[in-house]
Nucleic acid binder design. Structure first.
Lengths: 234, 234
DNA sequence: ACCTGAACACCGTTCAAGT
DNA sequence: ACCTGAACACCGTTCAAGT
């Protein structure tokens, strides 16, 4: 504690140290618990000291997002567009999975940082290099949306089924009965899909499988449209 | 002001009035500016008075989401699964477009309210009634994700291009030149796609077209898999 | 039964001052 | 050049008290 404070005093703050500490703190406590004041405390510094290195909290978040994007593997060379896009998306997914807060940060940002723009530009380049028209590429990018970053909005998040797992058995049974009565279709689909846990809702699915299922569905669709020289004007 | 306060005193608060006021306030000022304290002020009441009608802010947000879901048109009867799903999604989209904050609220929620579950259950029912296997329906629901609610994560949001539109012409020109040098692919795709405004980034697109393009791409994919009796196990 | 007042433990950020 | 202290204008929420 005192040790850390002294170390901090010795080596002065800089933008890189602030961002690295912010990423580490968010990894540990989540994005909602990341405050300027708490970050300052970790760095052994008074809150206002941070404002010499980042303009405000928004810029801090931008810097954190850029750091995560820096972890995405570069484009595979020599592969066809479909394989290259697939690898890039799955690599982005790995980086985002290492920093669970990054998805929320990416969603909340206005997102025009150089790293975001560079990633997007390279991504578009994969389709153009594959012979896609500018027109089709544009719609394809919209259709992919956040899937470009390796994530999508899931139906229900993990927190709910974690809470369910913590419930006493009789409460779980009562919930299952209630679900069966009121929401029979959900129960059917969820029960068929459950893998490791016995949750009533559709968590405990193989997220990676679901993600690739949807990604491949879209890529196959893009391939088909490209093959038939699809155009939005006709 | 005094008038409003007196009216509020006459008719006591109840959950419905609190929720209606919250929806109206969020419509007006956005979700980030919606605070318990500000809502109380609008209702001419002290902040703590709200806590007799909603347990906390999370429950308030759940109630607001439920109110928006209540605006979604009921399922079309007698149509095939593809048309019924399409109509339902586009109706949800209309409801969400009327309340721009609802998307953010829906994303942030743990989302297990009765209204969310009921909507999801009916939605799943459309595929099952269309003859989809439980297995395929499960993956299809994951693939749709938030598209079920009529929205998807866009690449860049409107705020950025609004800011750009407010920039002086020479600054816009400088930005275009910078984009051309650094991000030529983005510029190409964005320039080809611009409709009404002259923005350098990909806003000013026809959102409705883009949404339906992606939705139909997925529905066509689902139809194809269903037709070939696709199963995840083989 | 319903509402209030005061308080607690937080936020992000500005401003003037220190070294 | 970099950091600090005090302050401002906010949050959500608890608790004991009022009517």
């Amino acid at each position: 504690m005192t040790q850390q404070l002294q170390t901090s005093r010795r080596t002065p703050l800089n933008r890189g140290r602030v961002l690295a500490a912010a990423v580490a703190l968010a990894d540990e406590v989540g994005l909602d618990a990341l405050s300027m004041r708490r970050l300052a405390e970790v760095l052994g510094v008074v809150p206002m000291a941070l404002y010499k290195h980042v303009a405000n909290k928004d810029e801090l978040l931008d810097g954190m997002v850029d750091a995560v994007i820096g972890e995405i593997a570069p484009v595979a060379s020599g592969a066809g567009w479909k394989i290259a896009v697939r690898l890039r998306v799955l690599s982005a997914r790995q980086a985002l999975l290492r920093h669970p807060w990054a998805r929320q940060a990416l969603e909340s940002r206005t997102n025009r940082t150089p790293a975001v723009l560079a990633y997007t530009d390279e991504f578009i380049g994969l389709f153009l290099a594959g012979g896609f028209s500018v027109d089709l590429t544009h719609h394809v990018m919209h259709a992919l949306g956040s899937r470009m970053w390796g994530f999508t909005q899931e139906l229900f998040n993990a927190a709910a089924s974690d809470a369910e797992a913590a419930m006493p058995p009789e409460a779980q049974a009562a919930m299952a009965q209630e679900m069966a009565l009121r929401y029979p279709n959900i129960l059917q689909v969820a029960t068929a899909a459950r893998h490791d846990d016995g949750s009533v809702v559709s968590y405990g699915c193989d997220d990676q499988f679901e993600f690739e299922f949807a990604l491949d569905l879209m890529l196959d669709g893009f391939e088909r449209l490209h093959g038939q020289r699809w155009s939005s004007s006709g």
